[in-house]
Amino acid sequence: MNELFVVSASPHVRGKMNIDLAMRLVIIALVPALSYSVFLFGIRVLIITAISIGASVACEALMQKMLGKKITVTDGSAVLTGLLLAFNLPPAVPLWLPAIGSAFAIIFAKQLFGGLGYNFINPALAGRAFLMASWPLFMTKAWLAPANGTLSGIDGITSATPLSLLKNAANYGDPSIIVRQLNDFDTIKNIFFGNIGGCIGETSALLLLIGGLFLIIIRVVDYRIVVGYLVSVAVLVFVLPTKGTLMFHLFSGGLFLGAFFMATDWVTSPVTHKGRWIFGAGCGILTIIIRIWGGYPEGVSYSILLMNVFTPLIDSLTKERVFGELSKKKGVKK
């Protein structure tokens, strides 16, 4: 037999995880939250999600064609971007909004920078921030009340989500009563199970928690970022002057969606272990600062965006300790 054998670089065995699989697993982990949202807000949610994903995939293919690259929409990353963007939109936004947001996300935040792996900022969040800057009214007012519940999780208040209620309690009645109601066990329970209004994907903390833990266990999501994020939020809730309790801050808004699914985006988070702790903690700190003192009721997406911006710097400042480096203590004996 004179045929030559295949010569390739070692190693000759490979692990099971790959990009396509990881993207699909993340999407699967998000499906429970999406289904629940459809139950809460109706079929409109599904339409928005479909438009968002469709626009995202179409833009990805179009840009790759225009830039003369291989079309790789099947890797699932564009689908995930579209899905996450839809998760960050209020359910009553006009239908053209997700399409434009997706287009911005894919074109300006991802493809122009070289496509998957080279974007320095999370495309879905960039899309959301773009929509937020351009159409703040739709992004902060287009809520729908959930099935069998109220927008705020409290009976009688139907025009604000829990976080904006906390921020501007005085606009909706007696602030002290509202704050007490918000921190009630019943309200917290509503918030935890998702019986409140909010962005499409962020309502049910429980389902997001389940999906997120699944991803941590199969090693798609790094626990350092999630733990760093949640712990820093928890610590700051105790330290800083906020009217919300720990449970309220942890379960409300997009914190779980952000901490488990968006801050942990591989491409836009640091690669070093120390860097991931810093990144997670930074997200938590900025989230709480924006929630308490910032111009918006919710700070999750901006905090992650800001930390995305700092990621390259964090990476270059926190190199891993090379084996045998500075090993005065353990290395040289005698």
Binding site: S8, H12, R14, G15, M17, N18, I19, A22, D75, G114, G115, L116, G117, Y118, R219, D222, W266, V267, T268, S269, P270, V271, T272, H273, R276, K319, E320, R321, V322, F323, G324, E325
Partner: peptide, 23 residues
């Protein structure tokens, strides 16, 4: 093995597993 390589998505699995602490 299919030798086609994808773009690095910075999953940092290589950083996690490198026994020498490299990136």
């Amino acid at each position: 093995w299919d030798t086609e390589e994808g773009p690095c998505v910075r999953c940092a699995h290589c950083v996690d597993v490198c026994p020498m602490g490299l990136m």
